[in-house]
């Protein structure tokens, strides 16, 4: 990372912030009204069976707020509680929020930070993810946008990754990882030869924010900075179009082309090479500005085919 920075504002790390701190920094000051907040004490009814402590908001903060004056519904997962994983209450809060957004004709912003399904309530979590996907599609076919923001500790794994793939637009930072099977899951099931989960550089080349941005898996790449996420959210919320069959036909072509073009690549760096990045090996070490300049002309854009 380059030390040269001319910014006068103090950078606040999105990665280090809690879910509540992220919401406070993302949304217009004082505009957030929480639904089913901690005082409602809607905790998981299942964790006690496993002698695990509950959290009053079950690891997700939901409500309505303004984003540069525009009313939105927002949800933030707390990646430090149970890895931000989806349980029954956690998931149902997001389902309810998305249904409420549809009823109120509002866009939604999702601050995803999740390891996937909470295994202690796996069936309820899995089903909640399916309900969330359906609610997102309902909202989007009705002409509203769902913006995903990914750059937290837990990344965006399992069903969370599939939810990300259903958003209108995705904003990601370098620490943000998006995948279905996480590194440990691949290694456990297929062996260390298939994937060495301890190899952090490999993890980032395969599912990290830069790789996703380069291949069209994310639309916007930002610094690990709450102010950068806010600016990107405002920019990406404007002017989106509804999810239609034509959008999906374009996505079909886009994903098919990705397989055709990069399907034989064994490593992220080979994909970047094929894209025409001048010096692929230097990509992981670039700061945000260098990176955006180096890849702007060659990256695959999703062009709203998502």
């Amino acid at each position: 990372m380059s030390q040269a920075t001319t910014k006068t504002q103090r950078r606040v790390s999105w990665f280090e912030a809690t879910a509540r701190q992220r919401l406070a920094a993302l949304l217009d000051p004082g505009s957030f009204t929480e639904f089913l907040g901690p005082a409602a004490r809607e905790i998981s009814p299942h964790l006690a069976l496993f002698s695990l402590p509950a959290q009053f908001d079950d690891g997700i903060v939901i409500g309505k707020a303004k984003l540069r004056g525009h009313e939105v519904f927002a949800a933030a997962q707390e990646g430090r509680f149970m890895g931000g994983a989806f349980g029954e209450v956690h998931g149902a809060k997001l389902v309810g929020l998305l249904r409420a957004a549809k009823a109120a004709s509002r866009d939604a912003v999702l601050l995803l930070d999740t390891g996937g399904v909470r295994l202690q309530e796996a069936n309820a979590g899995e089903l909640a993810i399916s309900e969330i996907i359906r609610a997102i599609v309902d909202l989007r076919t009705g002409g509203h946008s769902v913006i995903g923001l990914i750059g937290g500790r837990a990344g965006c794994f399992g069903g969370g990754g599939i939810i990300a793939g259903c958003c209108t637009r995705l904003i990601v930072s370098e620490p943000g990882r998006i995948s279905v099977s996480g590194p440990e899951v691949i290694e456990t099931n297929r062996g260390v030869e298939e994937f060495d989960s301890q190899d952090r550089a490999l993890v980032w080349r395969t599912m990290g924010g830069k790789h996703r941005y380069l291949t069209g898996g994310a639309d916007c790449f930002v610094d690990d900075d709450t102010a950068a996420f806010r600016a990107a959210a405002i920019e990406n919320l404007a002017g989106r179009t509804p999810l239609t069959v034509s959008v999906l036909e374009a996505e079909q072509a886009r994903l098919k082309a990705r397989l055709r073009r990069f399907g034989t690549a064994k490593d992220g760096s080979e994909v970047w090479q094929a894209l025409g990045v001048t010096n692929p090996a230097s990509v992981p070490g670039m700061d945000t500005e260098e990176f955006l300049n180096a890849v702007r002309a060659v990256r695959e854009s999703a062009d709203d085919a998502r």
Binding site: T18, R20, G37, P38, A39, P53, A54, Q55, F56, D57, E78, R80, F81
Partner: peptide, 15 residues
């Protein structure tokens, strides 16, 4: 009402 902290190892939340 105020809420501080998160329920994580070595941490707590207080409402």
């Amino acid at each position: 009402m105020a809420i501080v902290g998160v329920v994580a190892s070595g941490n707590l939340e207080a409402l």
